Amino acid sequence: MNTIVISIKGVSYQYPEQESLALNNVSLDVYKGEWLAIVGHNGSGKSTLAKMLNGLHYPSKGTVMIGGYALNEENVWSIREKLGMVFQNPDNQFVGTTVQDDVAFGLENNGVEHGVMQERVFASLEKVGMTAFLNQEPHHLSGGQKQRVAIAGVIALRPDIILLDEATSMLDPLGREEVMNTVRELNEKEGLTVISITHDLEEAAKADRVIVLNEGRLYTEGTPQSIFQLDRELLNLGLGVPFAVQMSQLLADAGLQLSQRHFNEEELVSELWTLNFKM
C-alpha cells in the first residue's frame, strides 16, 4: 500500500453563508488497496470532504489529486470514473424498476455495449451476493440488500476507489454487518480502495487506517488499535467508543487478564468463553 491514489494538500473550504472554515488546511493521502475510515462528529468536516472527493465542492485553497487528475471543473467527470460513491439513503439512488435495471443504469449512460453490460451487471451483483434478486423491485428489499445493490451499481462502472458516505447509518445491525462484510470482501479480493466516511467507530474498527477530523482540521490518524486507545479524547470529541472496547477496558480494570483490547464483540465473547473453560 505505497501507491498514492488520492493526495490532499493544504485544503480549505468555506461555505458562503458561514464564517468559519468547514475544512481548514487538511492534508492526507489515500493509498491503493487500503480501507481508510474518516470519522468525526457532526460539523467536523467529514461530509464536506466527501462531497469534495466526488467533485461536488472545489477547494477554496489547496489541491486535491484523484487518480492522477487535479480536482477542477475540467477533470471532474474523469475523476468520477475513478471514484464511485455510495450515499446514506439507498432509496435516493434507485432509478430502475428492477435490481438489474438499476445496476445497468450507469453503464447505459456511459454507452457500454449491451452484451458487455449484461456481463458486468451479473458479475457485480454476484460480488455482492445479490444475483437471486435480479428481477426484484429495489424498494421491496431490506436496507442491507438495498445498499448492496447500490454498491453493485458502483462497482459495475469499475472505479478504482469506492467512497461510502455514511452508507450504513440508516441500517439495522444485521444490514450494517451485511454491507461491511461485502465491502471487506471487495477490498480484500478485488483490491478496491475503500474510503468510509462515518461517525460510527464500530464501522471504523474494520478499516486499515482511521483519520479523525475535528472542527475542520485533521485531529489525529492511525490504526484502529491506536485510535481507540484515545477513548476519553474521542468521547470529548463527541465520538462513542465501540462497546467491545469499553467492555474490554472495564473487564481489565476489574482484574480480568485479557490477551488484548478487543474491537469487536465476537472476539471478546470468544476469549471470555476460553477463559471460562480454563477456570
Rank of each mutant, 00 (worst) to 15 (best):
93 Q>G: 09
93 Q>K: 10
93 Q>N: 05
93 Q>V: 06
94 F>A: 06
95 V>T: 14
95 V>S: 03
96 G>F: 11
96 G>V: 13
96 G>K: 01
97 T>H: 07
97 T>G: 01
98 T>R: 04
98 T>Y: 04
99 V>G: 09
99 V>M: 09
99 V>Y: 09
99 V>I: 04
99 V>A: 07
101 D>W: 06
101 D>S: 11
101 D>R: 11
101 D>M: 06
103 V>F: 11
104 A>L: 03
105 F>D: 02
105 F>S: 03
106 G>Q: 07
107 L>R: 04
108 E>H: 10
109 N>A: 08
110 N>S: 07
111 G>I: 09
111 G>M: 08
111 G>K: 01
111 G>C: 14
112 V>A: 01
112 V>G: 05
113 E>G: 00
113 E>V: 05
113 E>T: 02
113 E>A: 08
114 H>S: 10
114 H>A: 12
114 H>M: 09
115 G>T: 06
115 G>N: 07
116 V>H: 00
118 Q>T: 04
118 Q>A: 05
118 Q>L: 08
119 E>D: 14
119 E>F: 00
119 E>V: 01
119 E>C: 02
120 R>Y: 06
120 R>Q: 14
120 R>D: 02
121 V>D: 02
122 F>Y: 15
122 F>V: 10
123 A>L: 11
123 A>M: 13
124 S>I: 07
124 S>F: 08
124 S>L: 12
127 K>F: 13
128 V>I: 14
